[in-house]
Design a binder for these strands. Structure first.
Length: 317
DNA sequence: TTGTGTCAAGCCCAC
DNA sequence: GTGGGCTTGACACAA
């Protein structure tokens, strides 16, 4: 039986459209936020959301039915409520439009989110995660793991077991919609969490485990890839979203950090007879997936230039 | 327009 | 002890 890969997606940036200044990552430094305030945050957020719609439509047109939304859609989101933005009416209308599109959307909030943290660290985490969930609410998306809000457990605070227990405890502080969307992912460092380490969280609070192939290869614990894949697969109540990328060190640059992702995709993805959706985390984004699908993408001029430079460097040896 | 130093958050790790 | 990296470079400002 041929393994089935249903949806293929990529993360946060579309290089083809970025070359035309279509991006969802507009932000500002603190100083500017202090000076310009909510009005400017609103202006950037509206542009980001409008461009997200353009990217989503590009995706659908090109056969991508899975996309990870950037965590930076709303600059300084922890400092205000989305509904308080001056352009809220237009922002909401655009989000609703996005929510009606036939595509699976997910998010992956940053490493500053420490649900097992305490005090202000925990308070900031709650704010950040709730805003991501509110964004999906505004899109009109039913709360479920179909639109996952995926995080890492974070630090171990010197005691994995106690930290996992605190994670599960703090989970109860989240809104019902956020609880229905949250997932956890295995880490790439041996000091952090393997798929098997995360199973107790699933058992305690029922949240699915996202299997990251590359992280597993760097931090397998005692499980083979197939075992870890199937362990994670069994925690899902909808079709899982897993993450895949190749190693830059193995494929492109022997001096690269071992955790670095490759620009392109090289290896076949094993799905062990299961149906899963895959977010490809290659630096070349949609271009890498198009190439994997056997299509020759129209490379934006900036990318062509970059590749030419790389070829020139290689040819000097 | 382009080059460059700098940038919210928490944790871990290489140096 | 400091800085880089993380799911993603982009901003701000000087030249």
């Amino acid at each position: 039986m041929t393994p089935t890969l249903l949806n293929m997606g990529y993360a946060c940036i579309n290089l083809t459209l970025q070359a035309r200044q279509i991006t969802t990552n507009r932000g500002m430094i603190k100083k500017t936020f202090v000076q310009k305030g909510l009005a400017y945050a609103s202006e950037l957020a509206l542009k980001n959301v409008q461009d997200l719609l353009a990217i989503v439509d590009w995706n659908i047109e090109h056969g991508f039915r899975l996309f990870r939304i950037s965590s930076d859609l709303f600059p300084w989101a922890s400092e205000y409520r989305i509904a308080d933005l001056p352009d809220f009416t237009e922002i909401r209308a655009t989000l609703e439009e996005i929510g009606r599109r036939p595509i699976r959307l997910t998010t992956h909030p940053g490493p500053f989110n420490q649900l097992a943290g305490q005090g202000s660290v925990l308070a900031n985490t709650l704010k950040d995660l709730e805003y991501q969930s509110e964004m999906f609410d505004l899109m009109g998306l039913k709360p479920s793991h179909w639109n996952k809000i995926n995080i890492h457990v974070g630090g171990t605070y010197g005691d994995k077991t106690a930290t996992l227990a605190r994670f599960a405890q703090n989970f109860s502080l989240l809104s019902a919609n956020l609880r229905a969307r949250l997932t956890v992912e295995n880490d790439d460092r041996t000091s952090l969490y393997t798929v098997a380490d995360l199973v107790p969280i699933y058992e305690a609070i029922g949240i699915p485990v996202v299997f990251d192939y590359f992280h597993h290869s760097l931090n397998p614990g005692y499980q083979t890839e197939e075992e870890a894949f199937l362990t994670a697969y069994a925690t899902w109540d909808v079709r899982p979203v897993f993450h895949y990328s190749d190693s830059r060190q193995d494929r492109e640059d022997s001096h690269a950090r071992r955790e670095a992702h490759a620009d392109w995709l090289y290896s076949p993805v094993h799905t062990y007879g299961k149906e899963v959706d895959i977010v490809f985390e290659s630096k070349m984004k949609e271009l890498a997936v198009l190439r994997l699908r056997g299509e020759d993408p129209d490379l934006p001029p900036a990318i062509q230039k970059l590749m030419q430079q790389q070829n020139d460097e290689l040819s000097t040896f």
